[in-house]
Simulated scan of single mutants.
Amino acid sequence: MTKTRRYVYVTFLMTLILFMTFTSYGYFNLTPFIRVTLIQIPVIIGSLWFGWRTGALLGFAFGMSSLIYNTINPVVTSFVFSPFYPVIGTDQGSPLALIIAFVPRILVGIVPWFVYQGLKKIERLPKIPRIAISALMGSLTNTLLVLGLIYVLFGTAYAQARSVAVESLAGILLTTISVNGVVEAICSSVIVTALFTRIKVNHQD
């Protein structure tokens, strides 16, 4: 693949991330209680297609889009993603929000590639399961790290924003992981596998 062609594909994936962030196409309601995020899909595809460095770049774009979105369209919990939105109970934002906005998303672009490379060492494991597992792990990386960091860095303020007791926050986040997170990971795995398999068929460079 030429550098120009690679640049075009990566630019397209980055544009897709921004498009999905600022439209309803990045999220959909599977049920009245389960909302699935799909923005990590272009990041995972970029990681598997071009390697972890490109994946990290796309993950950075994912994080930046999240930062911008939560800054210009704030909701009561936006302080966990944007340092420009005041933390509940204070009159200023926290730079710790940048950790949540960027670190999990950058790792979404790194983890799938390393998981895929590791699975290649299992000789009897076919290509499609390798892709599916790698995508699954990439999606779970986002969910686990975002919610885990929210609990560690902003637990009390986040509980206040959600109008729940601090003591019950861990249980609420674990439920979110076990329901939304798992469904999201499965959806990501299925979509990435279908799309990436098609891409590799059409672009054998």
Results as ranks from 00 to 15, higher is better:
N142L: 07
S188T: 14
N202W: 11
Y9D: 11
S47K: 03
I199A: 12
S139L: 05
P86R: 02
G26C: 10
I131H: 05
F19Q: 08
E184T: 11
G171T: 04
P74N: 06
T197D: 11
S139T: 10
T31D: 05
T176G: 15
C187E: 03
T15N: 07
I34Q: 09
G63D: 04
P129W: 07
A157S: 13
G51R: 08
G93T: 08
K121V: 06
T176W: 11
T54M: 09
L144W: 11
G63Y: 03
I172W: 00
L195N: 02
G46Y: 01
A56T: 10
I41P: 06
G51E: 06
S168F: 06
H203F: 14
L140Q: 04
I177F: 15
Y151F: 15
L140S: 03
F79R: 00
T90V: 05
V201A: 15
L119Q: 08
S134V: 08
I99Y: 01
L38G: 09
Y25G: 10
F81N: 09
L125R: 06
L125A: 09
I128M: 14
P86D: 04
S24D: 14
I99R: 02
W113A: 15
T54D: 06
T77G: 04
W49N: 09
F33Q: 11
I39G: 03
T90C: 04
P32W: 07
T175V: 12
V36Q: 01
W113N: 13
E184N: 05
D205G: 12
S188L: 07
F102G: 01
G109W: 01
V192P: 10
G155K: 03
I88N: 00
T77F: 05
T90W: 02
A159F: 02
I122Y: 06
I34N: 06
T175L: 14
A61L: 14
F84K: 02
T23A: 11
F22L: 11
A61H: 02
I68F: 10
Y7N: 15
L16C: 04
E167W: 00
V36A: 04
L57A: 14
P42K: 12
I199H: 09
I122A: 12
G118T: 12
G55V: 08
G93V: 05
F33K: 06
S65H: 00
P83Y: 12
Q92D: 12
V183R: 01
V108G: 08
L67V: 03
L107Q: 03
I172D: 02
L98H: 03
G59W: 08
L107D: 03
L67E: 00
F19P: 07
I17T: 12
I72Q: 07
G51V: 10
I88D: 00
Y151V: 02
I191M: 05
T176V: 15
M20N: 07
A194C: 10
